[in-house]
Design a protein around this nucleic acid. Structure first.
Lengths: 176, 176
DNA sequence: CCGATTTAGTTTAGCGCTAAAGGAGTTGCT
DNA sequence: AGCAACTCCTTTAGCGCTAAACTAAATCGG
């Protein structure tokens, strides 16, 4: 008596349970759904950003600068450290945003190797508009969850994320 | 009195609350963490798959065929419909997997336009090994969650995913 | 049946990313 | 001081993806 409101994850799980009965299918219910939700949130952001003439990597750059507070300036290295992308990607993002007039680059005073990246007024304005739009809209995406459910979800995700982050960090740094 | 075990999402949320107090920062606790978890799961899979000489897009193709059951054969179109990627991407995935000897392509009997893609014995073996490895390992990633917490998480994710899927589907198909 | 339309799959241009190589400035050792 | 080692950033080759152009086969309507 299978329940009828199977989703994609349920179907994948049922497929593996049928075909490879020895394999544990438990993780699918969480991991596959997290992947799929991440995709949906990404696609939804992209639709909004298209309207605003931005893309998600530019938004990430502008937001990192904006969140740092006045004078909205960081070095490339600081941006890379906060962005979870490679230094090369940051360099390209800055070049694109500079061409669009959203940031300006200047050699940093103290250290001739670093580059200070600063938000222009237009970059700041576009970022503030986009962040307000996105977060207000994303709030509605989670409306279907009750307040308690929402908070418990955030809390559980935080626990899991903390555990995995610590675990992977420890694995990367094998015992001396 | 800020709690001290802030994670990245908490820091982003605190930054926006400080800089743009009018913007609702609630969604960050869920959406940002889902993105980050998806990234971690992806990176973890990639490490395992590297060892096995596979990549995640090839795994996805082989798994789709394997889950369909004997004779492990589907048309390109059926694969695309199950894969959440474009038809072009499927075509390229098949070409790579065929070059690696993991699938074989043949014009499909009934309809001269379609292509039947079938798992080779080696493709089937590699897929079964990889799926067993991955799922057994991923089970341990979720070990830190209690059974109840795990089940509640899966259930909440399923609800949210269902709501969003229906909502976006409805938006794509505007009223007639 | 014949031409137009639709459908299945492939090919290609362009995108942003990573990893690795390169260029320029700084630090440290003697 | 002088030179090696290091650091910060940029550049580039290669990858897989998407969107769109394209080829070929099937279907439909007069």
């Amino acid at each position: 008596m299978t329940t009828d409101d199977e989703d994609g994850a349920d179907r994948i799980r049922a497929g593996w349970r049928r075909e490879l009965p020895d394999v544990p299918v438990g993780p699918i219910g969480v991991i596959t759904r997290i992947w799929r939700l991440a995709q949906l949130f990404t696609a939804d952001r992209e639709r909004t950003l298209d309207r605003l003439g931005l893309d998600s990597s530019t938004l990430d750059l502008l937001s990192t600068l904006r969140r740092s507070g006045p004078p909205y300036e960081l070095t490339s290295g600081q941006i890379a450290a906060r962005s979870f992308v490679s230094a090369g990607a940051v360099s390209q993002r800055i070049a694109r945003a500079e061409a669009a007039g959203l940031v300006r680059r200047a050699r940093s005073g103290a250290d001739g190797r670093s580059v200070a990246v600063r938000l222009t007024d237009e970059g700041r304005r576009m970022n503030e508009d986009a962040v307000a739009d996105l977060l207000r809209h994303e709030e509605t995406l989670l409306d279907g969850l009750g307040a308690t459910e929402h908070d418990e979800l955030a809390a559980t995700l935080k626990v899991l994320l903390g555990q995995l982050t610590r675990r992977f960090d420890a694995e990367d740094r094998p015992p001396p």
